[in-house]
Design a binder for these strands. Sequence first.
DNA 1: TAGGCCATCTGGTCCT
DNA 2: AGGACCAGATGGCCTA
Length: 195
Amino acid sequence: MPPSKSLFAPFVPLDQEGGVGTGAPVALHADLHALLQRSRTQERPGAERTRRGGCDHRDPPCAIVELRLGPTGGALHYLQPDKCALERAQRRRRLAANARERRRMLGLNIAFDRLRSVIPNLESDKKLSKSETLQMAQIYISTLSELLEEGACGASERSPGATPPPPPRGTKPLSGETPEPEPEREPKSGAEDLR
DNA sequence: TAGGCCATCTGGTCCT
DNA sequence: AGGACCAGATGGCCTA
C-alpha cells in the first residue's frame, strides 16, 4: 500500500524556460530578445503541438489511480506509479534540452550578428540573411587576402629581380557555389551577385 | 498569396 | 547520464 499521506508524487514545477530551475540568463541584451521570443512562442498555438500524449507534466501533479468499486465499497489502487514519474522525468529532460538548444542557437545568432558587423553591407538598412552573411564573409575575406597579396607583391617588386605584378583581373566571383579563388576588388559588388 | 527567412521543437548521434 | 551538435518538421512573420 502506498503512502497514504498524499496521492500526489513529489513534484518540482518547471520554470518558464523548461529547464530545471537554473534561471534564465539576463546579462545579454540578446537574452532579452530570447525572452521576448519565448513569451511569444508560448502564446503560439504551435507550442501546443509539443504537448504530446495525454499527460502534460506542466499540469498540476497527478497520479495514475483507479477507483474500484466492490461490494465492500471503493478502494484506490495505484496503477503504474512509476510510469508517470518516468514520463515526467523524460519531459523535464526534453524541456531542458529545448532550453539548451535555444541558448545554442542564440549564441549562433550572436556570432552571426558579430560577423555582420564586420563585413560591408551595401544595403545597410536591410539586414543580411544568414546565408548572405556567410557568402559576403567569404567574398570579403577573399578580397582582403588578395589585397594583402598585392601589397606584398608591390613591396617586393621594388627590389631587383622581383616578379612582375599579377595581371589585372576583372572576373567576378561566382556566388553561391564553390569559393572563387580570384574575387573582385570591391566586395560590395559581390553583394549584387548574391541577389 | 506564394516564397523566403527565421525560431523553435524534436529525435538522433556522438562525445565526455 | 547529460550536454553539444545536427537535421528535419512546423508554424509565424514579412515582402514582392
